[in-house]
């Protein structure tokens, strides 16, 4: 008992150091923040469509396919940078991508899509950011993988880049 008291400081110390070391070495990418919505049903919303100027047809868009939901805005610089990867996923891999236009001027958003190309099957307008909050979005761009049952499988906070594109695509394949 007495011995244990004298050894306990070094034991506690080693535990702390190993925790720190583990964190430093395996330091996960900050953008891999686990979403509270993983394995939850994709939140529903009612809004207008940016492309058709009519109601966004939630039931039609969230059908029985795997889909990706991408929050973007024309004023967000990393969104422009990630756009070519979204494009790639849509046009080359043939994956259904739903856009959600976060706090944007519809005119500017349309202009932006004209310039960079439109990979989205439809774009929902989130003028005051309510949809984003319901989806637990921290900051745009954020991209969700939603499976055929409309269950959220994965969330990427931050842009898709050259670096994480392949890993992200693997996540899509995994959930197909």
């Amino acid at each position: 008992m007495r011995k244990f008291i004298f050894i306990s400081p070094i034991i506690v110390f080693f535990c702390i150091i190993f925790i720190f070391l583990y964190l430093l070495i395996t330091k996960s990418d900050p953008s891999e923040l686990p979403s509270a919505l993983i394995n939850q049903k994709a939140p529903k919303f009612e809004t207008l469509s940016l492309l058709s100027e009519k109601n966004f047809l939630y039931e039609k868009e969230f059908n029985h396919d795997l889909k990706i939901v991408n929050f973007f805005s024309s004023w967000c610089i990393p969104c422009s940078a990630e756009h070519k990867y979204i494009d790639l996923l849509s046009k080359e891999k043939g994956i259904k991508i739903i856009g959600i236009n976060y706090k944007d001027d519809p005119k500017k958003a349309l202009q932006w899509l004209d310039n960079l190309g439109n990979p989205y099957s439809d774009v929902a307008i989130d003028s005051n950011g309510d949809i984003a909050i319901n989806w637990g979005v921290y900051g745009i761009p954020e991209t969700f993988i939603v499976n055929y049952n409309n269950i959220i499988q994965y969330r990427l906070a931050g842009p898709i880049t050259k670096k994480n594109y392949e890993a992200f695509y693997q996540q899509i394949i995994k959930n197909k």
């Binding site: 720190f20 964190l23 430093l24 330091k27 996960s28 900050p30 923040l33 921290y138 900051g139």
Partner: peptide
């Protein structure tokens, strides 16, 4: 080391 500031701030030189 930046291990406490992991959320959306970029870590320093590891």
């Amino acid at each position: 080391s930046g291990i406490l500031t992991s959320v959306h701030t970029f870590a320093l030189d590891p």
